[in-house]
Amino acid sequence: MQLTALLQATTNAFERLAVWRDQMNRKHAVATALAVVLGVAFLSPLWGGLTTAFKTGSGFVTTTPLTPPTPGIFTLQPWGEAWATIGPSLGNSLMFTVPAMLLSAVLGSIAAYGLTMVDWRGQVAVMTLFIAAIFLPKQGLLLPLSRFWTAVDLAGLLESIGYFGLPFAHPKHTTIIQLIVTHACFGISICTLLFRGYYLTIDDDILEAARIDGASIFSIYRNIILPLSYPMFMVVFIFQFTQIYNEFLYALILVGGSNPDTGAPVTLALAELNSGFSQNWNGQMAGAFVTAIPTLIVYLLFGEQFAKGVEY
């Protein structure tokens, strides 16, 4: 009697196991199919762009974008062309992107510390202002921005402190500094929000322990919070680098043209590559890839931390 019951129970268990396995297999199959479809959808434009960049003009016209370049239509000429237009601007881009990224991240982190971990009256109101700033539409800021930099005579200011007498000085640095300040300012609000979210997860006890240990507010930031912020800095760096490097509108307003000697960044140079009467697709594609290289490097450098998420 008992033996039959046991047998029955075992059979039932096996049956359930088989059903479960089937379900798992089905789920697995669906997931794989989805991954493949989405992967193809995402990668095909990239692939098409890459093949086009290695084809001659006529090669592009006679083949579909997804066909790889055959020896007859293979050429490196678009890359040379793209580099000639974009290369000189690459330095300009990095010259303001990196300082603006560092500035906005550091200032955002300090602001978030002051707004999250130090108690004072009215901090909620200030935080609300920061958050509101994130949602200001860019287009609405263009006019005040250009008026602001007209009112602030930065070139005259630099002249008066004797900056242009320095050996490395260049007239375009005026524009570069304008871009640094502009991007750093507009970046602070989002950086503050990102750091704030992270600081809220840090155990208050650690700060109190540090206070009892005798650390001042600034010393707590430098010795405890800043080192603990390392993973969040990586995230903010990637985010800000991409934002600032890829930015087009502010640069267009502040620089005006695509001349690298006036401080034009790559985004303006790439746009220059797109203008003209005939569309040289291969040159544009090569230009897009050249432009993307610094962002790719940043992702490679900090990406592991980015994907891992933030944990102290």
Binding site: D205, A210, G214
Partner: peptide, 29 residues
């Protein structure tokens, strides 16, 4: 202020500084 009271506290969560070694944790105060 807490630092002027000459007291030391042990927290329920220990509140050790996670990025410092044990030696640095003890030295900090």
């Amino acid at each position: 202020k807490p630092q002027d009271r000459n007291i030391a506290m042990v927290f329920q969560s220990y509140a050790l500084y996670p990025h410092m070694t044990v030696r640095e944790n003890m030295r900090f105060g």
